[in-house]
């Protein structure tokens, strides 16, 4: 009989919560357990999900990234503006992704080279990107480029009767795959885990700390920017004032997805489940009709608390075992 590896406990808890929430919904509402609801769930949460993949890497490395919401909004308005002035959509997306990666790398450099606290540096990033978004254009810009209006809607797959998997959802799932690959099958990914678990040991083991840390924030910048791109697909517009507080959703998804907030333990597919849990709670509350949206925040807060305390208990037990 093999004992359950303690690092899987939060992940199992996540899966249990996911099944429980989905089960509750299906039991209460006949229309809840349909593929269509599920596809919509993926679609509605795609941009949060993509950004949360980047956040997962930062949290795995023991840091935190607060600039996610601003980054998504910034990229949104950047693309909308570029398209407005007649830029090719692919070029615009490329520029946006580069800008996001660059901003992430700059934050990573500040954190590594000057040993500044990540939450403060990314907080500055939050302010900067939010402001820069308004510099580009202070109001919402609709996107009516033919690529968005005509090509995108066709890039979808019928997965079940009356359930069309839209392109945004595909982007989300692709991000999960790419993220899982990076985290589990590259040296960089493994170094992220090592640094997040014990930076001092990682240094003594001769792992490249500087390169890994900076790359982690650059990668988070890339995924946040990708989240912004997906958001333009979803919203068909860019607005510098949007997505305030998205970083909290991203962080909550990662933690509820079973990743240790102190770093070193967690799985990218867990983040997928975390995003789905958050989305399901939202859907559930919408289905109910009498419950109000603020319950979402409270439930997320309670879940966050449960997972943080659970992690604390596991790590405490691990310490006493030594």
């Amino acid at each position: 009989m093999t004992r359950l590896n303690p690092k899987y406990i939060p992940l199992v808890a996540t899966a249990v919560v996911l099944v429980a929430v989905f089960g509750t919904g299906s039991a209460l509402y006949p229309n809840f357990g349909t593929p269509r609801v599920f596809v919509n769930l993926l679609n509605d949460n795609a941009f949060v999900g993509v950004a949360a993949i980047g956040e997962s890497f930062v949290i795995l490395s023991g840091g935190i990234d607060l600039s996610v919401g601003s980054m998504v909004a910034f990229v949104g308005i950047l693309i909308a503006k570029l398209l407005q002035v007649g830029c090719d959509p692919f070029l615009a997306m490329g520029i946006a992704l580069c800008a996001g990666t660059f901003a992430g790398a700059v934050m990573g450099c500040l954190i590594y080279f000057f040993e500044m606290p990540p939450f403060l540096v990314t907080l500055a990033g939050l302010f900067c990107l939010r402001g820069l978004g308004f510099v580009i254009y202070p109001e919402s810009i609709g996107i009516d480029h033919p690529f968005y209006a005509q090509v995108l809607p066709q890039l979808s797959i019928l997965v079940a009767p009356k359930a069309v998997l839209p392109f945004t959802a595909m982007c989300f799932l692709a991000s999960v795959l790419v993220g899982t690959f990076i985290a589990s099958f590259t040296r960089f990914g493994r170094n992220v885990y090592a640094i997040g678990s014990n930076e001092n040991s990682a240094r003594l083991m001769g792992l490249p700390i500087a390169q890994t840390k900076i790359l982690t924030y650059a990668l988070a910048g890339f995924f946040s920017a990708a989240g912004g791109v997906v958001a333009t697909f979803y919203m068909q517009s860019g607005n510098p004032a949007s997505f305030v507080g998205l970083e909290l959703d991203a962080i909550a998804s990662v933690v509820i997805g079973g990743t240790l907030l102190t770093g070193g333990v967690g799985f990218i597919p867990g983040t997928l489940m975390g995003v789905l849990i958050l989305g399901l709670i939202q859907t559930l509350i919408n289905f109910n009709g009498t419950l109000n949206s603020w319950w979402t925040k409270i439930v997320i807060g309670v879940l966050l608390l449960i997972f943080i305390v659970l992690q604390k208990l596991i790590s405490r037990r691990a310490v006493t075992q030594l």
Partner: peptide, 27 residues
């Protein structure tokens, strides 16, 4: 009491607090 890192511990109320406030004002 529980020895949870401050950023993490106060994050809980940061997320849930606004929901509680909305609950009180009923939106």
């Amino acid at each position: 009491g529980f020895g949870i890192q401050p950023i993490v511990a106060t994050l809980v109320l940061m997320v849930a607090g606004r929901g509680i406030a909305q609950l009180i004002t009923e939106g």
